[in-house]
C-alpha cells in the first residue's frame, strides 16, 4: 500500500508535470521554443504513477508527448528546458529538441517523433535485461495511435515469445491527432492485444495515479521474476490540442473536454488526501506555488542560455572508438 508521504510526493510531481506543460505553452506562444509543444496536461497520473513504481535502474522509452515521462523518471529540468529551446546545454545539445533525446544516466532510452518508433527499442532493452540476467524492467510508453504501427505488433509478439521484462504502457487518450479511437480500430479496448501475443492485457483508469502505481508495481514484479510482459492500457484524455496552435476542438466537443477536466488526476488525489485529513487546501496551494516559482526561475535561466554555434560538426556523427556502452 502507498503511504501518505509517497502519495504526497506523487501529487507534487503531477503538479510539476502540469506546470511544465504550461511553461512550454507560454514559451511556445512567444516563440521562445522551436518546434511544437505536445501538452501532457490531463495525463499526468500515468507518467507519475508508472515512474514512482520503478527502481532507479529500470528504464523507460518515450514518444512525442514525452516531457512528463522524463521529468517523472528524473530528468534535470534545466537541461530539459534548454533542449526544448534548442540551447547548446540541452540534453541533445540542441540537435534533437524535446522529441529527440535520450540519457542512459537516468534510465531514459530515448524518445522520437516517429509514432511507435521506440516500442521495439524498449523491447530490445528488455531483451538485454533478460540476456544479462539483470533485474531491470523496461517501460514502453506509447499512445493509442501508435498501437496500430506494424512494428509495435512485431515487437510485442517477440516480447511474448521470449517472456521479456517489458511493460507496454498504452496511454489511451482516445485520439491520434484528430482521428478518434472508433476510426482507428475495431476492438473496444487495446488491452485485448495482450492476449494475441500470449501475455496479460489490462485496461485501467489512467487518471487514478494510485491505480497506475499499483498496477505498474505488480507488472514490474512479474517482469522481474521472469513471467514476461504486461500490456497496461491507461484510459485518459489530453486537455489541450494535439500540438501548439491546435485548439483541439475541431474533432472533439467542448462537453467532452469539460467532462474529462472534471476527472482531473491532480484534483482527484488532492481531494482524497484532504478528505482523509492528510492535506489542507492551503498546504496544497503552498506546494503548488513553490513548484511553479521554482520552475519559472529555471526556465528563465534556460532561456538566457546560448544557442549552439552555426557550424556543422562532422566529428559528432559517430561515437568515438574508445567509448564503450554497457
Amino acid at each position: 500500500m502507498l503511504d501518505t508521504a509517497k502519495r504526497k510526493a506523487m501529487l507534487r510531481q503531477m503538479v510539476l508535470l502540469r506546470a511544465f506543460e504550461e511553461k512550454l505553452e507560454e514559451l511556445y506562444q512567444r516563440k521562445a521554443m522551436f518546434g511544437s509543444t505536445h501538452s501532457y496536461r490531463g495525463q499526468e497520473a500515468i507518467a507519475v504513477g508508472v515512474c514512482s513504481a520503478l527502481q532507479s535502474s529500470d528504464l523507460i522509452a518515450s514518444y512525442h508527448r514525452g516531457t512528463g515521462h522524463l521529468i517523472a523518471k528524473g530528468a534535470d529540468l534545466y537541461t530539459l528546458l534548454c533542449e526544448c529551446m534548442g540551447r547548446a546545454e540541452g540534453y541533445s545539445k540542441g540537435r534533437g529538441g524535446k522529441m529527440h533525446m535520450g540519457d542512459m544516466a537516468f534510465g531514459f532510452i530515448g524518445n522520437t517523433g516517429t509514432v511507435g518508433g521506440t516500442v521495439p527499442t524498449a523491447t530490445g532493452a528488455a531483451l538485454s535485461a533478460k540476456v544479462r540476467g539483470s533485474k531491470e524492467v523496461v517501460i514502453s510508453f506509447f499512445g493509442d495511435g501508435a498501437a496500430n504501427q506494424g512494428v509495435v505488433h512485431e515487437a510485442m509478439n517477440m516480447a511474448g515469445l521470449w517472456k521479456l521484462p517489458v511493460i507496454y504502457v498504452c496511454e489511451n487518450n482516445q485520439y491520434a491527432m484528430t482521428v478518434s479511437l472508433e476510426k482507428s480500430t475495431a476492438v473496444k479496448q487495446y488491452s485485448v492485444r495482450g492476449a494475441a501475443y500470449g501475455f496479460e492485457g489490462k485496461t485501467i483508469d489512467g487518471n487514478d495515479v494510485e491505480a497506475v502505481y499499483e498496477e505498474t508495481a505488480r507488472a514490474a514484479a512479474k517482469g522481474r521474476s521472469g513471467d514476461g510482459p504486461t500490456f497496461l492500457e491507461c484510459m485518459t484524455y489530453r486537455w489541450d490540442g494535439h500540438f501548439g496552435g491546435d485548439p483541439g476542438t475541431a474533432y472533439r466537443t467542448k462537453e467532452e473536454i469539460e467532462s474529462w477536466k472534471q476527472k482531473c488526476p491532480i484534483k482527484r488525489l488532492k481531494e482524497k488526501l484532504i478528505a482523509e485529513g492528510h492535506l489542507s487546501e492551503s498546504e496544497f496551494q503552498k506546494t503548488s506555488d513553490e513548484v511553479y516559482a521554482d520552475l519559472a526561475a529555471i526556465a528563465e535561466r534556460a532561456e538566457a542560455a546560448p544557442l549552439p554555434k552555426k557550424e556543422v560538426d562532422l566529428t559528432s556523427i559517430y561515437a568515438p572508438l574508445e567509448v564503450s556502452h554497457g
Binding site: 522551436f34 518546434g35 541533445s92 540542441g94 540537435r95 549552439p308 554555434k309 552555426k310 556543422v312 562532422l314
Partner: peptide, 16 residues
C-alpha cells in the same frame, strides 16, 4: 545538405 541528421536548433539547421 551537410551529411548530418537534420537537427532541431536554428543555427544547426542553418549550418546544414
Amino acid at each position: 545538405a551537410q551529411p548530418i541528421p537534420p537537427p532541431h536548433s536554428p543555427p544547426l539547421v542553418d549550418a546544414m
